[in-house]
């Protein structure tokens, strides 16, 4: 119904991705502009998420719009058994745009089919989180000066990590080369390897997180290895520290290498990396603000 919704990164063409990156760079230069004056944006967080919600709400506030919404579904009518459809239709009466996070997968896609206002998916369970992917792409482009021909090494939980799957698919336009570094239980799923093959994308798989792999890398994309992902807890104990990054491991890395992480991190990046100029994860999160400002303006059809 509202085709300016953003539900999945795969809904965006290469041109739209590049356009959003360019718009985001304008917002980085000047994040405070009054272009959302008179607009009301609803942030509906059926599942709590502090980071993403603060980032979206800051994006709206810095552009002069107003925010309504909730950050905890237990306080809403959905906890009384109201359908998602009724909640979305009700909020559509008040807001010009809905940003939603839901633990139920496909919730945003469904909402975008009937809502009279555009929907931005801020995460639907293990499925999609397109603004995260946009900020990853923005960060890669900004630190490397291009999205093309980069070697991207993904480390940690490649099986369940939705950010690595979405990033992998979005990079298909830009001739990437991937290294997948993970333990046996958390390998990159077959369907994504088949996706690489079908798109002529070179990839290599490693069990060892070695300096050899780091040294040929442009983007080192770290993810968290969570205990609850393991069927075999002995395997978890064996591997839990094998995919951690320490500062000394970056000694012979390429000068342009940057370390990314979708946050929150626990111990997969040790704190001695933070002061290395190649550490980029905090700035990466900040870029989320600009990427979201660009996504919001696209959804509302505002030229910026």
């Amino acid at each position: 119904m509202s085709n300016k919704s953003l539900v999945s990164i795969n809904d965006l063409s290469k041109e739209e991705i590049l356009d959003l990156i360019e718009k985001a760079s304008h917002f980085e230069q000047n994040p405070n502009r009054d272009i959302l004056a008179g607009k009301v944006v609803a942030t509906l967080f059926f599942e709590p998420s502090t980071r993403t919600r603060l980032s979206f709400e800051t994006a709206v506030n810095r552009l002069g719009g107003r925010v309504i919404g909730f950050s905890d579904a237990s306080t809403t009518s959905s906890s009384k058994g109201e359908t998602l459809k009724d909640t979305i239709m009700m909020v559509s009466n008040y807001a010009d745009l809905i940003v939603m996070r839901h633990h139920i997968e496909g919730a945003a896609r469904y909402a975008s089919e009937f809502a009279p206002v555009p929907i931005i998916n801020a995460g639907d369970g293990a499925n999609q989180h397109p603004s995260q992917t946009m900020l990853d792409l923005y960060s890669i482009n900004k630190t490397q000066g291009t999205l093309y021909d980069l070697t991207i090494t993904m480390v940690g939980d490649l099986k369940y990590g939705r950010t690595v799957h979405s990033l992998l698919m979005a990079m298909r336009h830009f001739r990437p080369r991937f290294n997948f570094v993970a333990c046996n239980e958390l390998q990159m799923p077959l369907e994504y390897k088949e996706f690489c093959q079908a798109n002529g994308i070179e990839y290599h798989e490693y069990r060892d997180f070695s300096e050899e792999v780091i040294n040929e890398t442009d983007i080192l994309y770290m993810t968290r290895v969570q205990r609850e992902r393991f069927t075999d807890l002995l395997e978890y104990e064996r591997v839990k520290n094998l995919y951690n990054l320490h500062n000394s491991m970056l000694d012979n890395s390429k000068p342009n290498l940057r370390v990314l992480h979708p946050l929150p991190r626990v111990n997969e990046i040790s704190y001695d990396v933070d002061d290395n100029p190649k550490a980029y994860y905090i700035q990466q999160a900040k870029n989320g603000l600009y990427a979201r400002q660009a996504i919001i303006c696209r959804a509302l059809g505002i030229d910026c």
């Binding site: 459809k85 633990h103 139920i104 997968e105 496909g106 919730a107 469904y110």
Partner: peptide
Amino acid sequence: PKCITNNEPM
């Protein structure tokens, strides 16, 4: 089971 189609009349 976490799909919207199993959680909403649709």
